[in-house]
Design a binder for these strands. Sequence first.
DNA 1: TTTAAATGATAGCAACACTATCTTTTAATG
DNA 2: CATTAAAAGATAGTGTTGCTATCATTTAAA
Lengths: 226, 226
Amino acid sequence: MEIQLHIKMNEKLFLRDPEQSELGKKIIRHSIQLIHKNGFEAFTFKKLAEAIGTTEAGIYRYFENKHRLLIYITAWYWSWLEYRVSFQTNNIKDPVVKLKMVIILLATTVEDDIRTSYVDEGILHQIIVTEGSKAYLTKRVSEDNKDHLFKPYKDLCAVIGNMILECNPHYKYPKSLASTIIEMAHFQNFFMNNLPSLTDFGKNKNEAEIVLFLEDLVFSSLNSAQ
Amino acid sequence: MEIQLHIKMNEKLFLRDPEQSELGKKIIRHSIQLIHKNGFEAFTFKKLAEAIGTTEAGIYRYFENKHRLLIYITAWYWSWLEYRVSFQTNNIKDPVVKLKMVIILLATTVEDDIRTSYVDEGILHQIIVTEGSKAYLTKRVSEDNKDHLFKPYKDLCAVIGNMILECNPHYKYPKSLASTIIEMAHFQNFFMNNLPSLTDFGKNKNEAEIVLFLEDLVFSSLNSAQ
DNA sequence: TTTAAATGATAGCAACACTATCTTTTAATG
DNA sequence: CATTAAAAGATAGTGTTGCTATCATTTAAA
């Protein structure tokens, strides 16, 4: 059986829905590749248009600017991750087992999901590690938040927060711990690979150690709260 | 007695030392103000020059580009914070008390230090919260790291990592926990003020609660490790 | 007093971030 | 099949950003 995975995105994220046309899908696929290759700062719509074989004006019909495109890509990523979390923790009763699964999903390299034809999740994960927080670390964050552009991120955080409470209803900071896990899964990865002295994983550069660190962090907190 | 605090910065951070001239100090003071007001993305050397009453070319004699200036400002901040940490924890024997002091210094609003005439630490703290991680979240991070541009950040992290080991020599992830505290002190602050549903502090928006969360996180980990 | 260093003033250029307009292609509909 | 609306392509243009170069003037050091 062939399953296609389709994530419905908030309409305010784009001017024209990129999933509804070949050009739109090319924009997503190539923008992920280009941002991965040159970084978000050096990424321009002109270069993207050249890579695709269209014109700048063509891109602007889909996205207001490159920052909006970044928000779209990150929102897609968090939506996809929340789907994976719900899939992989389905039928698991033990909240501790569920939470451990979440940590693995957050902190380990993802492989390309063949059900999404125009997104390479492997490199998407890498650009979210480096560029993801730039989506909200702006002066416009509150306005963008009012348009619900960060809903997928917040939804994932809420899901993880609830798992934390399932593990220990007395724990006082479920949401902050959830956002800490999410951010640190990425930052420790970035530090490990780029500024290794900020971590304890510089020698082996092994993602499995980040998982152990996060597990220790989370379950120490949850086991000591009452 | 009047004490002047002077932080010697790595020479690779600038083309001409901004602390050695009036114009240089104006560049630092006004760039902090402008970045705070408009955000780093909208900040340009042209606007900075206008604010100071000099020309673009004048700024370029001090800093290669605005990203280097951001690295300079963040490096200055981390150096200043490490100084405060060493000052405030001096003569304290109990490593737990020291670590609690560090968390307070990291997570609470700073007041302007009158000993540094050309830096307003209050707004500097705010721009580091929003813009700080953009200093290293780039394609150039490894090259910049080779030039030791992030040394103040790494030094502070090492200091905190050692305090963590003083508290519990058996704890396995002192450096990662240190970078986690540093980053989360800022991210939880940003989230609390801009995306409050990612935290448990949205209602009161009180920095003291971030301190409590971080203390809980750190000492749960340290007390459970053996 | 001379002289070197720093600053000011001005110009210029390539790339970037858009917007506008018009034509051609493609896809939907009667 | 013909009509027509939507999408995409092609081209041009404008203000801003990021940066370099040059030369005159001021300031500070020797």
